[in-house]
Amino acid sequence: MIEIQDIKKSFNDKEVLKGVSATFEDGKCNLIIGSSGTGKSVLLKNIVGLIQPDSGKILYDNRDFTSGDKKDQSEIRREIGMLFQGSALFDSKTVEQNIMFPLDVLTDMSKEEKIERVNFCLDRVGMANVNNKMPAEISGGMKKRVGIARAIVNKPNYLFCDEPNSGLDPQTSMVIDELIKEITDEYGITTVVVTHDMNSVIEIGQKVIFLYKGLKLWEGSNKDITHSGVKELDDFVFANRMMKEFR
């Protein structure tokens, strides 16, 4: 379980996060939703430690990630896997080297063990036999899968995904969503997904947190999201729904 308490963050006098508290539960897909520019990515970057919050606490299973203790931090970091919006594969490395990279730097596994683990992960995301391709040679959807494989290769306890289906067609988006959900269920990890895609919310949103202008306005599950009674959330949900029906 990840607990965040009263996270605040400003950039040059611009208050982006105005005190956000939430919990992300084990073995569930926890979604952070909200319209563009509300601070979803900033919140996620705070949680994984890419940005230091101005104030507030982040607890990973009661271990304080914000205490400044380097040893605790690197321990927690080892348990984090992250899928980036643009996949962020290292473009000078092959698919196999990309996925193996966390094992290279974080573990002392033997070469054989590493290759076995890499192949297992590639297989798990449905991408067997692309080991020697370069990232530039595979499609966006395939990159996302490789990104997921890299994120789970070191058996993380926490998985973070920033807009896993941006830039993908609806069908591929769905496949990626399913994959994230399956992996979460299978390994019982705590997954946090940032998205503004209502399809994902309906599909995998076991727990949903709605951000609006740097504040958490609502939380609940995808079942309750259509009758939350929060105006801003209704606007967000039905804007999307209307678009869908319109088509």
């Binding site: 970057k45 980036f84 290292f90 473009d91």
Partner: peptide, 14 residues
């Protein structure tokens, strides 16, 4: 590497 978040990816791995 910076704009494609590869540097962030390294940082997340510690």
């Amino acid at each position: 590497m910076r704009i494609t978040e590869q540097i962030d990816a390294l940082e997340v791995m510690g």
